[in-house]
Design a protein around this nucleic acid. Structure first.
Lengths: 224, 224
DNA sequence: CCATGTGAAGGTATTCACAGCC
DNA sequence: GGCTGTGAATACCTTCACATGG
């Protein structure tokens, strides 16, 4: 493996592979081939092999990948080999749903703190996590929390993120539908749910007319 | 504008521009330049101009883009020029949060039906929408609902999607963390929240060591 | 012989730089 | 003069085809 810049897209796919390994029907087997994993996660086998190749040689030719070893390697690459604690800011409908969501555990992620401005919520417990006031954000440094989820209204997003950055948070998952400025050393992923739904209709063919845009669609569909 | 295949990434950005136009501080002005819009939404001005250029010439040189006209054009391109009705399947924590989320309206999206298997939920109202039993999915055809949001457990996802496809749904936003097979004529967007959080730690620099992967990170950071 | 690992080819998207037009 | 629209250059990612090695 010579040195290569690692594509952003490869990093995006690594958690897919990890998830695939965890629930694959190959459970019970010790090894899995890139071909089987491909069929299960919906990514091409050569793409999988290329992705892994950026980080080392994890497989055995003629045999495949040792499932446990591969999972361990991916976790190491993603820095998920330690439990990662996350703070949730904004315990509204979405925030509460996230607190209740059991899917984070599979990645070693733990939402271990939650914050809100609403005095009525502060002190109550949601799914075993006690809601704290916003001023608690400034004391995150000592609690070994490196990640944060922002589920506050748009108007509060930038201020929230600024405060998280000041508190030493290293990565933020933002659900507020707006641009947020952040220093380069902190990684920000913004996930705008309404926007995702909003681009679905684009792919609905418009009945009847066959204009330029429509033709573009057809072209795209053909090669998919 | 000669004919060009439209990049997937361009389609992904269109809703960002629409959102930007709706809340930009240029409100009150009639026109906005690609430069101002760029600053506001966090995309380069040349990227914005290139994106629009795939669909036509919407601006005026020396002046900028007429805000109303541009918004109308983007809505038309995204097929958001009619109200789009969506069905929600799975009214658990996440599903309920989505029903309560006010952000869809800005795009002309309306979650007008909700379905769940739980008899205790059927018949109750969440945010003005009455929960129906799953068998109602088969009668979606007559209700002018073209989109669906899937917020069911992983094990139920494929069956749910199959049923939606059979009911003539054209686009699906899936929150279940698994691969889902679907005919090419239906557009599927899968959004795995835990997975998004799981790739954040990758970007946290590992203190001390400076191995091959770490160098790759540095290289990436520099050019961002 | 079988499945991995990887240069090289091909395709797609971003960035540039400037011509074109109001 | 100022801002759009766009071919050309560049960067990036995917796909291929096969050498490599258990």
């Amino acid at each position: 493996m010579r040195f290569h810049k690692i594509p952003e897209e490869t990093v995006r796919r690594l958690p897919i592979y990890l998830r695939g390994l965890a629930v694959s029907p190959e459970q019970g087997q010790t090894h899995i081939s890139s071909e089987s994993l491909a069929a299960f996660v919906g990514v091409n086998s050569w793409q999988i092999r290329k992705d892994f190749s950026y980080f080392g040689e994890f497989g055995t030719r003629g045999v495949g990948y040792n499932i446990e070893r591969l999972a361990r390697e991916i976790k190491r690459i993603l820095r998920l080999d330690v439990i990662r604690k996350a703070a949730l800011v904004g315990v509204g409908d979405l925030g509460s749903a996230l607190l209740a969501y059991p899917g984070f555990g599979a990645y070693g992620l733990d939402i271990s703190a939650a914050f809100d401005v609403d005095p009525a919520k502060i002190g109550t417990r949601v799914n075993g996590v006690q809601i704290e006031g916003i001023e608690g954000l400034d004391r995150l440094k000592d609690r070994d929390i490196s990640l944060a989820i922002v589920a506050v209204p748009r108007a509060a997003a930038q201020a929230t993120v600024d405060r998280l950055v000041a508190a030493g948070i290293k990565g933020i998952l933002n659900f507020a539908p707006c641009k947020v400025d952040i220093p380069k050393r902190v990684k920000l992923i913004t996930l705008d749910i309404a926007m995702e739904l909003a681009r679905l209709p684009y792919y609905i063919p418009r009945a009847g007319r066959m204009d330029e845009e429509q033709r573009a669609d057809s072209a795209r569909q053909l090669q998919l």
